[in-house]
Design a protein around this nucleic acid. Sequence first.
DNA 1: GGTTTTTATAAATAACTATTTATAAATGTC
DNA 2: GACATTTATAAATAGTTATTTATAAAAACC
Lengths: 224, 224
Amino acid sequence: MAEEENEFDDLEDEEEEEEEEDEEFDYESDLDYKIENVVATVTVEITEKIDLNQIARKHAEVEYNPERFPGLVMRIEKPRATILIFSTGKMVVTGLRKAAEAERVVDKVVKNIRKAGIKLANPEITIQNIVASGDLHTNIDLNMAAIVMEYAMYEPEVFPGLIYRMQDPKTVFLIFSTGRIVCTGAKQKEIVRDAVKKLNQQVRDLGVAKKELDSSDYQDITFI
Amino acid sequence: MAEEENEFDDLEDEEEEEEEEDEEFDYESDLDYKIENVVATVTVEITEKIDLNQIARKHAEVEYNPERFPGLVMRIEKPRATILIFSTGKMVVTGLRKAAEAERVVDKVVKNIRKAGIKLANPEITIQNIVASGDLHTNIDLNMAAIVMEYAMYEPEVFPGLIYRMQDPKTVFLIFSTGRIVCTGAKQKEIVRDAVKKLNQQVRDLGVAKKELDSSDYQDITFI
DNA sequence: GGTTTTTATAAATAACTATTTATAAATGTC
DNA sequence: GACATTTATAAATAGTTATTTATAAAAACC
């Protein structure tokens, strides 16, 4: 199986190491974030368009309603992922936590498709999106943030988070008043890290943090 | 108004000359075809997304049903064209017979949009598709053609024409048993000409023409 | 017999259908 | 109060909605 654009074999040991901890922790820069979802696409070589009904007949557990959506939905475990399969042979893999898992998922899916009598070859995987959640460890004044941060949007009656479109690296953050964040739009884990690092710096530099409470402060207030 | 990618001012005199004849006729190579439809896209600079309802209120004759399709339909005369206008400011112009007309059409449309109080600037036009019809002046054995022509598809119970996907130039032909043809997919008129010329040559070379009847033969048969 | 619709082709435009995932506030239901 | 759903974000996938235009055969309707 050829690999495309993203070399991640050499990342595998590193990610397995991360798996031993609850959250990825970059000690070097004290960043607190964790990759929660990885979306990949897969292309294959086929001799003709796939009849998705053929797969639906062979695997009863898949979902396929072509009047509603042209893709067939296949869910697998170990690793857990959901795959959309299209008649062009192209697929979308969602729900991964580690990019390296994509290969094992695709192996299983290709096997399932072949079991239905469909011939395909040379799957190629591309990571398309990485979603990470994290914590800035400080409350945020979102009204202030919406004013001083360029490319920021905050409408609390519509959604409780501030939407911040970081230009470089080109990612989008959801920033909540609790200091919790979601980072999305990156295609490589290094870009996620760079973006999260930059956000931590910006939050400090722009002075949008509220007074930072640690847990002992909370307990004192609770007992009073 | 900036022009993009397709230089067609210098073609205008040539096309006006063509207008004096029923069909464009390339005497040099005896090609018989005529451009029937030109599709162009337009991009503009806007400061924020356009509220298409604003245009629909100002111009009662437009069509706008956002639950069905996100574009507003505007039809104009002189030259006659239909324009799809989207909230992003992008537009599709269809129904043109000459690429050079696009500029006048866009001038009118931009005026109409500005009348509704919407600000936009710097429209840029790109020709996206040209449709031409033509005549090979020989009947065609479509069953034979489907066999000897690569990238050809013919299913008479589904559609009476043969679909031929010419690779270079990348265009698509509909070829009918009467010898009538439709050429589509080109973005420049020169490409249309090249493609039609090549098809004429291929039809002769491959021997898929049936006996060519001229009008005197027809009349003799009719009287008998 | 005339008219209409469908079959097919290309191209651009964009929103919806579906999938996943964290975040959090509001709303509705039980 | 617990649970479910919605609001919002990104990304890929693809068919549908709509527009135009020539070509022609079949089917349906008047």
